[in-house]
């Protein structure tokens, strides 16, 4: 009875599905975005691989790029000034960087809203108080917070590098709306962000490195890898130690297993 019922139910599902299979499909025009969209260029990052590490100098340069260019529109609100110690900044340097920002607070006498100088414990302030203010100032576009951007996009660091260096002239068959820019690495190809890296030497690196567009893009992508995954080095170091330990433990476990089973496994040979 169960099997008869099952047969009925099974046939019902199968027929319904096959009915769906034979339905004609509407012809779908090939997606023009798909044809023009490009995958990010693969870069050899210092953070790649099992022993990957941040290059402190590069992160500091990346921070400079962020501060002098990106921070005009993009916040890194999940990062605290104190976190910058990981870039190799000293405590007084961090204090000075923090003091360069105004943080919203209340006046401790009157309770009225006011601002004070930033402290190392503060986080980088938002650029716009809310989404509406951001869109109003940015012609309807919302510049995302960059703290997590390299984890929030497929192939994060490569994507950041390719996006900010990848602006190009739109092909003849592609119409870019007013106020947007053609970028084959952006999902919809039309990005609201103007090309942030206009020319080589747009900024002057403190450490004297030549600020080519590619160099700036690599540096800021490294910096944003760190803002998204500040514990990357600790993670990889712990991983190497953990796996080394586990491999030894597993090898010992295997030897114990062989030894324990020796008498059972050998029996056929001894008969």
């Amino acid at each position: 009875m169960i099997r008869l019922g099952a047969l009925g139910v099974g046939l019902l599902f199968v027929i319904t599905l096959l009915w769906g299979v034979i339905q004609p499909r509407e012809a779908v025009a090939p997606d023009p975005v798909k044809a023009l969209h490009k995958h990010p260029q693969e870069i050899e990052w210092t953070t790649n691989g099992v022993f990957g590490k941040f290059d402190r100098k590069q992160m500091q340069r990346g921070f400079q790029v962020y501060k002098e260019i990106c921070s005009a529109c993009h916040s890194i609100h999940r990062v605290a000034f104190r976190d910058l110690a990981a870039l190799g900044f000293s405590a007084p340097e961090i204090k000075a960087i923090a003091a360069g920002y105004d943080i919203a607070t209340i006046d401790d006498k009157t309770g009225e809203p006011t601002t004070r100088k930033g402290l190392p414990a503060d986080k980088f302030p938002l650029i716009y108080p809310n989404e509406i203010a951001a869109r109003a100032a940015q012609n309807g576009a919302l510049p995302p917070d960059l703290s997590l951007i390299t984890k929030a996009r497929e192939d994060g660091p490569n994507y950041v590098h390719s996006l900010i260096t990848g602006y190009a002239d739109a092909p003849a068959n592609w119409k870019v709306p007013d106020g947007l820019y053609y970028n084959p690495y952006f999902r919809s190809l039309n990005v609201a962000m103007p090309p942030p890296l206009a020319a080589d030497d747009q900024i002057t690196y403190v450490d004297g490195t030549k600020a080519t567009k590619d160099q700036m893009a690599r540096d800021v992508a490294t910096f944003l890898t760190w803002t998204a995954e500040p514990k990357l080095e600790a993670r990889k170091e712990t991983g190497v130690a953990a796996i080394a330990f586990l491999l030894i433990l597993t090898a010992l476990g295997y030897l114990s297993y062989r030894k324990v089973w020796a008498d059972v496994k050998r029996k056929p040979a001894a008969v």
């Binding site: 099952a6 047969l7 139910v9 099974g10 046939l11 599902f13 199968v14 599905l17 096959l18 769906g20 299979v21």
Partner: peptide, 13 residues
Amino acid sequence: QLAAAYYFAHFLI
């Protein structure tokens, strides 16, 4: 759709 049909056919038929 074909794979889903097989899933049901496998168990029920």
